[in-house]
Design a protein around this nucleic acid. Structure first.
Lengths: 128, 128
DNA sequence: GTTATTGCAAACAATTTGCACCCAC
DNA sequence: GTGGGTGCAAATTGTTTGCAATAAC
């Protein structure tokens, strides 16, 4: 586990812990500027990449190709509408046991998991 | 449920059912050309969008922003390495019950779900 | 004939990369 | 002073859109 973090990595991680929802790299870039910690967009991406690899943040890539970042251990489960893209968090999570099982049988170090249901929300079902 | 499909939608769906793994839109475009069913790339995307909305295909967006398409009801569960991007399918799936439960309580029509574990594979753990 | 579908090229948007500058040690 | 970290701008990549040509009914 790496403990040596660059200035921008610290900034990004601190910001993520402050916010209460997943945000995009571009959001982070703008948010930092507003807090007088202006950081180049490329640097934000580089910091996120590093934090991701040490397991400090988790990523969820949306169908439009944009990625959202969260500190690890925040909820990562969603009900996502394929039409309007609305994503509702869900609480239930029946996979803890499976996770530890996979770690062992695959020699794979699991940082986090994501469970997502796709379909049509109430509203979009009507408008289709 | 729509039954009227355009020519390109039929081509795309037929192709997907032929292949035994998820492919990108660009893969589909090239594969169709090889089968003398050349179809514009934009048309492939439009066909996939339509098929997605009627629940005939499922999508998985990779961390690099590329989307992979599959006919619905094929495995959608993976163990993905954050470093090298390798994605290993897994069989276990403990969420069928939760799915029907969500359909009811959220008025949400679920087409499919995806369960993915992220971390580092055996090899990448060593090289980090 | 009218309407939906298609292909091409241009437009877009998120992300990555090259490279010069700068800061920390 | 040296090496990693950073910022900017340019390049890249997957996807979407405008619009004229075409096919379907």
């Amino acid at each position: 586990m790496k403990t040596q973090r660059t200035r921008s990595q610290q900034r990004v991680l601190t910001l993520l812990n402050t916010l209460n929802s997943a945000v995009s790299a571009q959001d982070i870039h703008m948010e930092l500027r507003q807090r007088n910690q202006t950081t180049g967009l490329a640097t934000v991406y580089r910091a996120l990449e590093a934090l991701k690899l040490e397991g400090a943040v988790q990523v969820r890539t949306l169908p439009n190709g944009e990625s959202l970042y969260d500190p690890v251990h925040r909820d990562q489960h969603h009900l996502t509408c394929l039409n309007c893209g609305t994503s509702t968090p869900i609480d239930e999570c029946p996979v803890q046991e499976l996770e530890s099982q996979l770690q062992q049988s695959n020699q794979f170090k699991v940082f986090y998991h994501s469970l997502e249901f796709f379909g049509l929300c109430d509203q979009c079902q009507t408008n289709s």
